[in-house]
């Protein structure tokens, strides 16, 4: 699996050389969704706490780029975007991660709307503007920054999953009270993991904003950025580490195709595809792949 990941990575790194232009922009957006989905899974996929906050963290990253983009060099802006989102996640986590299940989901949903409206109010009342321009960055730079963030996201997800913290997160998802009895400081672990997952969302937002050149609160805090990672993760399947990557890549690509081919019906078509997938692929794409693999290897591989 790491070998395959490395090959894909090399191919991706070479892309701007042999296919400049539109393909680079397209793949940038796919990478962006993979980052959102993988970082969402780091926290929500393991603990079972459904976070609808990705749009908030992504948007904070975007606004960081808009506000600081002129003053600071790009790498600093991207890092600050990640840190700003992480700080927000830490605060939100400290307040809400004592809430169970659905209350946490609703709170994170509300958070996106809250920040959006707060910014709207601020821009109307205080600055008298609507939206902001973001400093321009060329497409290849955006692409490589996105790729770098992606690599860090995947590596972080991989190492957390392999460590005792990954197992502890999973145990919170299975039975939080038993996790408490096992001596796991569940509150601290949840808050820190939530903050870590937000770093990558914020960083991705910061670099993504430079491609849009203009953002306002509606663009930056669009709830689609919250729902897509959830859908993509489910579509891919969270039973295996590569599931969310696969799911995000396929759905993001599909979305692009549908938008260009059927600009008016694309949401409808995407909805139907996802519905069918959830009905017929209960374990997501991972389920399909694993079944094919078992058939090919004669069913000797146990599904762990």
């Amino acid at each position: 699996m790491p070998g395959l990941f490395l090959i894909v990575l090399l191919l991706l790194a070479a892309l701007p050389v042999y296919r400049p232009g539109y393909k680079v922009i397209l793949v940038s957006s796919i990478l962006m969704y993979v980052i959102l989905t993988v970082s969402w899974v780091i926290f929500s996929g393991t603990t079972g706490y459904l976070s609808l906050a990705p749009a908030a963290f992504f948007g904070v990253g975007m606004y960081t780029a808009a506000v600081l983009g002129m003053a600071l060099p790009l790498p600093v802006v991207v890092v600050l975007g990640g840190l700003a989102s992480s700080c927000l996640a830490f605060l939100v986590g400290a307040v809400t991660l004592r809430l169970r299940g659905i209350y946490f989901a609703i709170f994170t949903f509300g958070l996106v709307e809250f920040i959006k409206n707060l910014l709207l109010w601020w821009e109307i009342e205080r600055t008298g503007t609507r939206g902001r321009f973001v400093v321009l960055v060329d497409n290849n730079t955006i692409y490589y920054v996105m790729l770098a963030i992606l690599v860090m996201t995947v590596l972080t997800a991989y190492f957390i999953r392999r460590s005792r913290y990954g197992l502890a997160l999973q145990s919170i998802g299975e039975d939080e009270e038993a996790a408490v009895h096992a001596g796991i400081n569940v509150t601290a672990l949840k808050i820190v993991t939530f903050a870590i997952s937000a770093v990558f969302m914020g960083a991705a937002g910061a670099i993504w904003a430079t491609q849009l050149t203009y953002i306002d609160p509606y663009i930056a805090f669009n709830l689609n950025y919250s729902f897509m990672p959830v859908l993509m993760a489910i579509f891919g399947g969270i039973g295996q580490p590569y599931g969310p990557i696969l799911g995000a890549a396929v759905v993001a690509y599909l979305r692009e195709i549908l938008i260009t081919e059927f600009p008016y019906q694309y949401m409808l078509l995407l909805g139907i595809i996802l519905l069918v997938a959830i009905l017929f692929l209960p374990n997501g794409l991972v389920g399909l792949v694993e079944r094919a693999r078992r058939r090919a290897f004669g069913g000797q591989r146990a599904n762990t």
């Binding site: 502890a168 999973q170 145990s171 039975d175 038993a178 096992a182 001596g183």
Partner: peptide, 29 residues
């Protein structure tokens, strides 16, 4: 727990989707 008190809860409350070894490992967290 760190001070040396272990509470073995009612109804076992295992991590059912983990292996026996992983369950034990979590006990040593």
């Amino acid at each position: 727990v760190e001070m040396g008190i272990s509470h073995i809860p009612e109804g076992r409350r295992l991590f059912t989707q983990m292996s026996v070894g992983e369950n034990l490992e979590m006990g040593a967290y």
